[in-house]
């Protein structure tokens, strides 16, 4: 096990090196760099001053030289200073990470709370009307574009429709909350209801289908027949015998979905005007903010790799038959 983890970590390091070099080359090969974009509206600035600015921002170096510089400071934990926000990249990420993470985590909890029980229900009543209705909704949820669903919900519940939910932001800007009160919590809830609903509707189908497929397999297995034969109550058969074995693949899938808690939000954040990591990344890529883009993307890449590693290890932990090699 330890040997396996060490080997995986070594491979991960190579992968991260590859990703960072690829990303850096791409970001730097944008023809208009930050200095050109930021000074494009100013007529007074001379080319000499632009060159000076590039030197200050480290954009005058060649791609390879710049990459090596970035790499060595990143290895020391210094991701540089964001050009747009004029703050260290780690601080910018740390500041907005909690919002993104919190919203995505809440959504994940809702997805699991809806997807798993309905998946079990559909599996227990396989090929019945309930199963078909659930499956139809799952397919619609998986096929609807998030931005379209968001537009529909905004039109229905926002202004112009029922006008009961705010359509963007995190808090009502006209109210000042001095301390954390119940009213503030309600305000958060009202603002986040639609984004979280969009998340949940578009992705709970994945969990549902997964649970249903694994439950069907478990319910058809010999140990379930044995349990039924010895007269165990149906509730015990379904939840103790069958569902426990279904949990194995679900747990590994949860491990893999962890990086999505940070990256899956980009579009939804944009749609509902939530100031999170994704929304900022969109602006940064428009302004070709090299340090922020590198920091953010490497952060996501590390999350992805760690997520896969965790899910593989969890797989071995929950299922003793699996041997990591």
């Amino acid at each position: 096990m330890r040997h396996y983890i060490l080997r995986r970590l070594a491979i991960s390091a190579i992968i991260l090196l590859g990703i960072s070099f690829l990303m850096y080359t791409l970001v730097r090969s944008m023809p208009a760099d930050y200095v050109t974009l930021a000074t494009s509206s100013s007529t007074k600035i001379s080319d000499f001053q632009r060159e000076q600015l590039r030197k200050v921002y480290g954009l005058d170096k060649s791609v390879l030289g710049g990459y090596l510089d970035w790499l060595f400071s990143a290895l020391r934990g210094d991701l540089g200073t964001s050009l747009v926000y004029a703050q260290p990249v780690t601080e910018v990420i740390g500041k907005y990470m909690s919002i993104t993470f919190f919203v995505a985590l809440l959504a994940l909890i809702f997805e699991l709370a809806i997807g798993i029980p309905l998946g079990i229900l559909a599996a227990r009543h396989r090929n019945s009307a309930i199963d078909y209705i659930i499956t139809a909704f799952v397919f619609i949820g998986l096929s609807i574009p998030g931005f379209f669903l968001a537009a529909l919900m905004k039109r229905l519940f926002g202004f112009g429709g029922l006008n009961i939910l705010p359509t963007s932001g995190m808090l009502n800007p006209r109210v000042v909350y001095k301390t954390f009160t119940f009213a503030k919590l309600a305000d958060y809830a009202a603002h986040l209801a639609m984004p979280i609903a969009v998340f949940t509707i578009t992705s709970c189908g994945v969990w549902l289908r997964y649970t249903r497929a694994n439950m069907i397999e478990a319910l058809g297995s010999d140990y379930v027949r044995t349990a039924r034969a010895k007269g165990a109550p149906e509730r015990v058969v379904v939840y103790s015998h069958a569902f426990r074995n279904t949990l194995i693949p679900i747990v590994t899938l949860i491990g893999q979905s962890l990086p999505g808690l940070f990256s899956g939000a980009i579009i939804t954040e944009n749609l509902f005007g939530i100031q999170g990591l994704g929304n900022i990344a969109l602006k940064a890529s428009q302004m070709s903010d090299v340090p922020y883009l590198m920091g953010f993307n490497m952060f996501l890449a590390i999350c992805t790799i760690v997520g896969y590693l965790i899910s593989d290890i969890l797989y071995a932990v929950v299922d003793p038959r699996v041997r990591l090699s």
């Binding site: 491979i11 190579i14 992968i15 590859g18 990703i19 690829l22 990303m23 791409l26 970001v27 090969s29 944008m30 023809p31 208009a32 990256s263 980009i266 579009i267 994704g278 990344a281 969109l282 890529s285 428009q286 070709s288 883009l293 953010f296 993307n297 996501l300 890449a301 992805t304 790799i305």
Partner: peptide, 24 residues
């Protein structure tokens, strides 16, 4: 390893970068 690298690159940010590359 190439497959690992490419599938670990965050997709949407990559598309944003490629898109601004196209505009420029």
């Amino acid at each position: 390893r190439l497959v690992d690298i490419i599938s670990s690159i965050p997709f949407m940010p990559l598309m944003f970068i490629l898109a601004s590359l196209e505009i420029n």
